[in-house]
Amino acid sequence: MKHNLIKPFLMAILAIFIIAGCSKKEVNPVAINEKTDKCEICHMAVKDNEFATEIMLENGKSMVFDDIGCMYKWLKENNDKKVANSYVKDYDSKKWIEAEKASYVYDKPIKTPMAYNVISFTDKKDAQSFIDQHGGSLLTYDKLQSHTWEKNEEMVKEMKEKMKMHDGHDGHDGHDGMDMEHSEDSH
């Protein structure tokens, strides 16, 4: 009687491993569920838009990020994890593309969820035409690895300095200084 029970149990375990073995090595990005997915780094809800990115680990775990910058922050903090592949979205079609094959545009006036100001394109031509229209600098995947990932905060810092300076003064004129344009870097 005991043996009758053990056999199917072992078979079931075996089956699990066989299924698992077969389903390996096929890495595909998982669709974003806007209601339940949050960015692994900054904890904001991830919208299924052109800024979303995704990392697939080799064990099959997927993680989503709301900004390319957040993804790179995760990669930097977790370089011991084995990444199978990473994906970004095409800016125009909002479809997944492999991060390695994408072209990137960095420009400070580009608003992204976490203000890293980098967007991605499938086609280099699309990226170039975006730059022609709006300005910015083209980054390849390799160049992106050495990108500094500064949040658009320099002006914040400058402003802080200004505010401190104005603290003693009337402060009224200082407000105009705060309207500083964020286009200083655009071409």
Binding site: I16, I19, A20, S23, K24, L57, N59, G60, K61
Partner: peptide, 10 residues
Amino acid sequence: LVPYPLIDPL
């Protein structure tokens, strides 16, 4: 012992 994607259904 099982691969990660199976954890959720199991």
